[in-house]
Design a protein around this nucleic acid. Structure first.
Length: 505
DNA sequence: AAAAAAC
């Protein structure tokens, strides 16, 4: 059997891999690492979850051992479609590069330029970027791309979906022709093939089977619901409680199709006393980072997310995926449920289906080539909807305030006082702002510390994400649900909370 | 019917 030791990686890399507990490479790793070490171009066709990231990180670390970075001239460049994925790749470099002394710079949007700039000035061996921020740095003249030896284009098909290809082409033009290019995509539609032909020279092609399109380790079920959001939320809560009572629920990602619904559902779950976080692209980057971090650490049991979290995020041991909405694109279903049942573990997925979703459900079942079982009866078993059909436009219009009231009346669970105070003034117009504020409220202690620090340190960075003792603080704060006064702030209550609390009483 | 990404 092939082991990592057979692949030609350096001693430093092999020892970091062994420390991480790995001995046997995955097929994409076994296929890509040897030719990558020989400076060949690579065309890797692989989904996330196949060990793809290590298949470029490990050979890059080995190749980077000779030579040094010069100021503003990065030696390697990795392009990722989302900020979270970029951060995850950076973590991989830290983990497997622990025996190296490499400068790794993460260039993503939503955070301060200054620190990124300082890293560039020092000379970066590895640059991990989302396209927009990289181009921004280039346009400011802060970056010279003529020294790039290795270019990695990751998740190319997703880059295409997101309209990043023109940016990628602009970036590639700045990099010498003599570079080595590693190109990864989960699928190879004609546009991607054309792109690969332009970017790659005589590549080694490695294609690995998707881990059986929908992982066999995931038990999938459908739940019928009427179309009203408040009904779906009640169905979801019952489902979560039932899975928890059975002892199955460790943690869950709950997917919504829209950012606004992520915000609404998150608020609702918090109001009902669940331990929940939110993640979508309109949240400020600090909240995004904090939420993901807290979910990974187990400080939040539920993560309500948009499809920003559907692909590639590596959160080991997620027990459940709930689809609050049926995804519009069938492939997204596969990506979403792929967040659970990872690394051979078992996982469960539940998808809430309404009468409006049947054609999307059909497309999903066609794509995965099987019928998904209903948990308790299909749509025909539902009582008729009370107020006629509910389409999306209706839901967003005038009927909405009434629904909100009814939703509240349905369940009399007391909500934590602080959360209630913060969420009370939610309305159509400031929904997203409230989410940002809530994201803060769940980590007030942590953020107070970093804010204090940041007065001296220009702007806070990812590295300033809350440390472990802060989580314990927050949990105590979250579980405290008696008394109308915000508790846990000392005499340092943020102004926005005081306003809200006073307005309420 | 959406989401993602630069300021």
């Amino acid at each position: 059997m092939t082991t990592f030791a057979d692949l030609g990686l350096s001693q430093k890399v092999n020892s970091a891999v062994a420390d991480a507990g790995y001995t046997v490479p995955t097929p994409i790793q076994a296929g890509a690492i040897p030719p990558a070490l020989q400076r060949r171009d690579i065309l890797g066709i692989a989904q996330t979850g196949t060990g793809k990231t290590a298949s470029f990180v490990l050979p890059m670390l080995t190749l980077l051992e000779t030579g040094r970075a010069r100021a503003r001239m990065p030696r390697t460049l990795i392009l990722e479609p989302t900020r979270e994925l970029a951060a995850q790749v950076a973590e991989n470099f830290e983990k497997y590069g622990k025996n190296h002394r490499l400068n790794i710079a993460l260039l993503i949007g939503g955070v301060s330029f200054d620190e990124q700039d300082r890293k560039l000035e020092r000379g970066a061996d590895v640059l991990i970027c989302t396209p927009g921020r990289l181009l921004d740095h280039c346009e400011r003249g802060k970056l010279l791309m003529t020294g790039v030896e290795i270019l990695v284009i990751d998740e190319a098909d997703r880059m295409l979906d997101m309209g990043f290809i023109p940016d990628i082409e602009r970036i590639a033009k700045l990099i010498p022709f003599t570079r080595q290019t590693l190109f990864f995509s989960a699928t190879m539609p004609p546009e991607i093939q054309k792109l690969a032909d332009r970017f790659l020279q005589n590549p080694v092609r490695i294609e690995v089977a998707p881990p059986s399109s929908t992982a066999k380790t995931v038990t999938q079920r459908l739940i019928a619901s009427n179309g009203k959001d408040y009904e779906k939320r009640a169905v979801l809560r019952d489902l979560i409680k039932a899975q928890d009572d059975l002892g199955y629920l460790k943690n869950a990602i709950i997917f919504c199709n829209r950012k606004k619904d992520v915000a609404d559902l998150f608020r609702s779950l918090e109001r009902h006393g669940f331990s929940a976080g939110a993640l979508h692209g309109d949240m400020d980057q600090r909240s995004r980072t904090t939420m993901l971090h807290n979910f990974k650490e187990g400080n939040l049991q539920l993560l309500v997310a948009s499809d920003v979290a559907a692909r590639g995020l590596d959160i080991p041991d997620v027990s459940h995926v709930f689809n609050f909405d049926v995804p519009i694109h069938a492939e997204d279903y596969v990506h979403r449920i792929g967040r659970t049942g990872r690394a051979g573990r078992s996982g469960r997925s539940f998808t809430i289906v309404t009468r409006h979703d049947t054609k999307y459900l059909d497309a999903i079942e066609k794509l995965i080539g099987e019928k998904i079982e209903w948990q308790d009866g299909d749509l025909t078993a539902l009582p008729a909807e009370s107020e006629g059909s509910d389409n999306g436009r209706d839901r967003r219009g005038k009927g909405r305030g009434r629904e909100r009231d009814r939703d509240r009346k349905r369940d009399r669970q007391p909500a934590p006082a602080v959360t209630e105070a913060v969420t009370a003034p939610a309305n159509e117009d400031n929904g997203e702002e409230v989410v940002a504020a809530e994201a803060r409220s769940t980590s007030v202690k942590a953020e107070r510390k970093t804010e204090r620090k940041s007065r001296d340190e220009a702007r806070p960075s990812r590295q300033n994400a809350p440390a472990n003792d802060d989580h314990r603080e927050r949990r105590r704060y979250r579980d405290h649900d008696d008394g109308p006064t915000p508790v846990g702030f000392g005499d340092d209550i943020p102004a926005f909370m005081l306003i809200v609390a006073n307005a309420k009483s």
